[in-house]
Design a protein around this nucleic acid. Sequence first.
DNA 1: ATCCCGAGGG
DNA 2: CCCTCTGGAT
Length: 210
Amino acid sequence: MNKANQIYNLLYRSYGNIPCPLEYNTNFQLMIAVILSAQCTDKAVNKITPALFNNFPDAPSLAEAGLSEVENIIYPLGLYRMKAKNIILCAKELIKNYNSIIPDSISKLIKLPGIGRKSANVVISHAFNKPGFAVDTHVKRILNRTGVVDTKNPDRIEALIRKTISPEKLSNFSLLLIMHGRQCCKSQKPHCPKCIINNKCDFNKLNNLN
DNA sequence: ATCCCGAGGG
DNA sequence: CCCTCTGGAT
């Protein structure tokens, strides 16, 4: 078995099936929460989305929202001006082009303001149960350290993993790597000696940490 | 000081 | 490829 699948099995054994960390009631709210989650923790997003969705529960209400009011609500998340502008624009385009229904393909989703490839993969996997592989900073770091891939380009990483991991495992593989990245394979001080995949990892061998 | 489930623009 | 946008958590 190839290294990617070995790593999947080891991580799955200890973390299992990981649910979507973002809290939402509708696909629209999921998409907005995903946009807001850029460069901040899911916990921070979950803290402000109740207020946001109480005022603007759907595309029509958010499309008519005042920019400064939205900015005030999402302010703690950082990048708040860009995000406020993007989620309002996104709501407007959703109404105009998709009759307020979240599109179920990556190619359509990435055309919406604030939605890039990473976010599109998150949306299709949680909203439509389609195979999505979100390459975030953790996924990129672990797959490079272990030697599963040798590129920083997220599109290439996604393509490579889609070739080696079966579709039904893709979404959870991304979540498993994120979980392991936060708990163990940290950017600065990775806990290599106690890492459950250290015998599969080039980074660990290189640093001879166990 | 560094990182957080990035995206868009140059 | 690089830079900027952003504040909060650790």
